[in-house]
């Protein structure tokens, strides 16, 4: 899994990304120096709970944040400075190089246009060509995402499709211009279990066939296990742990990741309490000094409250921002997984 060399230039490089929402009452630091990178053809899961900054990060990557958001840091896609894009270049970038699949296809699709109209508009805007060519390409795409009787569904309105088919249509739209980077914001969360696994397997297959880099935002460890190559765990606007998915889920290095794993209901004995993380995430208007997880952390010491911990690298390809990694993961330090 770690056969790639670190030296190869990443497809996407995000350094110290910070997003602040300033209002008269307060300044909310939604993303607070997030740093991560993505290789071409790799699937990275941004894992975190609500308010951890994962969706805001994703929107910042596609430049979808509202004007009052103050964005700082550096985002490079194939050497191009994403945060500096303006005008036409930005229009070509969105949808052309980067595409997004949203959680709720019903609100992301325009209810007064058919699925086909959505697709044709995208294709002609970015690739040009005639209506007939675009229609043929659109039906090809609907076939690609396994929508049965694609030619008929081309003329369907979003409300005429089931939730699973709508999300497939959404994926077809995102893929229509062959993006280098696919962003997916909880694309299967609103789906039923038997449909969710179908869409996940579809996304996994498409990603492998088309080879685009993918960032997948989810709160569900199970989804990450199914689709990710690597995971970046976010807490209070920062990436606090990163590494290959199997290793992180098997032996987390950060106490928050360990707590998240323990509190996810999965085969626990029914007569025992679940090991829940006490307390709740910090108020993003008033972040604590030092490590933002320290107030909820059983391993926190005085040093944890002084400054936010620098990254440590407990094993090849793994990173954690914690002073107590040794306390969480003694086995890992001795023999790398």
């Amino acid at each position: 899994m770690d056969g790639h060399t670190e030296a190869a230039a990443p497809l996407l490089d995000v350094r110290d990304l910070t997003v602040k929402f300033v209002s008269r009452e307060a300044t909310v630091t939604a993303v607070n120096g997030a740093t991560f990178s993505l290789r071409a053809g790799e699937v990275l899961c941004l894992l975190g709970e609500s308010g951890s900054g994962k969706s805001v990060t994703l929107r910042a990557l596609m430049r979808l944040l509202p004007k009052q958001a103050q964005v700082a840091g550096r985002v490079e896609l194939g050497g191009q400075d994403v945060l500096a894009l303006q005008g036409k270049a930005l229009g070509a970038f969105r949808g052309g190089e980067v595409a997004m699949v949203f959680q709720e296809p019903m609100t992301a699709l325009d209810p007064v246009y058919t699925i086909g109209q959505h697709l044709v508009e995208m294709i002609r805007r970015h690739k040009g060509g005639t209506k007939v060519e675009a229609r043929a390409r659109a039906i090809e795409l609907l076939d690609l995402v396994k929508i049965p009787s694609a030619a008929r569904r081309f003329d369907a309105y979003p409300h005429e499709l089931s939730g699973g088919l709508r999300q497939r249509a959404m994926i077809a739209i995102a893929l229509s211009c062959g993006p280098r980077l696919l962003l997916a914001d909880e694309p299967t969360t609103a789906l039923d279990a038997t449909v969710q696994i179908q869409v996940l397997i579809l996304l996994r297959r498409l990603q492998q066939e088309l080879g685009m880099g993918t960032i997948f935002v989810t709160h569900d460890l199970g989804v990450a296990a199914e689709i990710a190559d690597r995971v970046a765990v976010m807490y209070a606007g920062r990436v606090i742990e990163e590494g290959p998915v199997a290793d992180v889920l098997r032996a987390p290095a950060h106490p928050y990741t360990a707590g998240l794993l323990a509190s996810t209901v999965h085969d626990q004995a029914p007569d025992q309490d679940i090991a829940a993380i006490p307390g709740s995430p910090p108020d993003l208007r008033r972040l604590p000094g030092g490590c933002s997880f320290a107030p909820r952390c059983g391993l926190a010491t005085e040093a944890c409250r002084q400054a936010f911990p620098d990254p440590v690298y407990p094993a090849p390809g793994r990173m954690a921002r914690c002073l107590r990694v040794a306390g969480v993961l003694p086995g890992l330090l001795r023999e790398p997984v």
Binding site: S162, G163, I197, T264
Partner: peptide, 17 residues
Amino acid sequence: LSMDAGRRIEAPPLVGD
């Protein structure tokens, strides 16, 4: 979902909605 990246589901148990 399995929570174990080593034991991924290869084929969906059901198709369609």
